[in-house]
């Protein structure tokens, strides 16, 4: 359990004070993946750097499993840091060490014997899927492989929490997904809490349970990923969600306009799914019930979140008025959010 209580961080400089984090209150439960999303400069990195004491809050208090981080110093703080794994955007591996030596670094810091270090590190190499690369140097690895080393290194001292500071931001989409899958796997396997900082809603949607949206040092919105995606309240959250749910939104509008021109007699509906409906054979049910309808899919995107599916589907339906009304009723009955975008 991680608790932020009224945490504020102000940086003092010659050009005046800068409040990077302002009055943040957050509770992160054991074993969950908690996402913190925001644009750069929103204060999310500063917030997490206070978790392991790399920054100290100007006011407020941070507790990790009962230990008040802000009250620790010296050897106690270093001992606690060993239990807080961290992975970074630019991996921050030592180029002078091989994969396995990098993973052994935190074990050396913790004072583990050479033999035990070797065994532990080898186990971690296998866990992150780098078997066979243990004696490679970081410069011989791809970005995704480097981040796997970073993850193994962060897990070395069996941490209580894992902080991921923009860990996928330097990676291509496919590698991002692989790394996110690995984080999720680790979270499930070890019941390890993960704090995931990112500016990509994609990462949040894919693996997080809860999300906090940060803007200008404040947490402006928080809740389950599912609820925040389904019903974003703040303008900035809506922006993040729209980037993710429908990246081709403008494209779709254009297609819809074209279709209205090409098929002026058709009806165009948008179906929005949240949750279990996305698993039901809604469209085939509709065609089955109303065989006189012609249905074609214009555009669709369905995403899996940790709590269910969300997404939208654009359909063009042509047919007689009776069948059409019946179909729309059926959709309502199946509790699919339906919006008629154009009806002749």
């Amino acid at each position: 359990m991680i608790e932020f209580k009224d945490v504020t961080k102000t940086f003092t400089s010659k050009d005046g004070d800068l409040t990077a984090v302002s009055d943040v209150n957050l509770n992160i439960d054991d074993g969950e993946i908690y996402g913190i999303v925001g644009y750069s400069g929103a204060g999310k990195s500063t917030l997490t750097r206070m978790l392991n004491g790399l920054e100290t809050p100007t006011s407020g208090e941070i507790d990790i499993n009962g230990d008040q981080i802000t009250a620790l110093s010296g050897i106690e703080l270093r001992k606690k840091r060993q239990k807080i794994g961290m992975i970074f955007q630019h991996f921050n591996l030592l180029w002078s060490r091989t994969v396995i030596q990098n993973i052994m670094f935190p074990l050396e810091v913790a004072g583990m014997s050479r033999k035990a270090r070797q065994e532990k590190a080898q186990h971690l190499v296998d866990l992150v899927g780098l078997t066979g690369r243990e004696h490679s140097y970081p410069s011989e690895l791809s970005g995704g492989q480097k981040q796997r080393v970073g993850i193994a290194r962060a897990l070395a001292n069996d941490p209580e929490i894992l902080i991921s500071d923009e860990a996928t931001s330097a990676l291509d989409p496919q590698t991002t997904d692989e790394v996110l899958d690995l984080l999720l796997e680790i979270n499930k396997k070890m019941n390890l809490s993960i704090v995931l900082i990112t500016h990509e809603m994609h990462a949040i949607r894919k693996i997080c349970d809860h999300v906090a949206v940060m803007d200008d040092g404040k947490v402006v919105e928080q809740g389950t990923v599912f609820n925040v995606f389904r019903n974003p309240k703040q303008e900035i959250t809506k922006r993040f969600v729209s980037e993710e749910v429908d990246p081709a939104l403008t494209d779709t509008n254009r297609i819809v306009e074209d279709l209205i021109k090409s098929y002026p007699d058709g009806t165009i509906v948008q179906l929005v799914f949240h949750g279990d409906q996305a698993k039901l054979p809604i469209v085939s049910e509709m065609i089955h019930e109303f065989p006189k309808l012609q249905v074609s899919i214009i555009e669709g995107s369905i995403h899996q979140t940790q709590e269910g599916s969300i997404g939208s589907l654009y359909l063009q339906i042509t047919g007689n008025k009776e069948s059409m009304d019946g179909a729309l009723d059926l959709l309502k009955k199946m509790r699919v959010e339906t919006e008629v975008i154009h009806r002749d």
């Binding site: 392991n52 790399l54 703080l77 606690k80 840091r81 921050n92 670094f105 935190p106 810091v109």
Partner: peptide, 10 residues
């Protein structure tokens, strides 16, 4: 960042 990573590992 590398120095900071070492610090964060205690």
């Amino acid at each position: 960042g590398v120095i900071e990573a070492a610090e964060s590992m205690g």
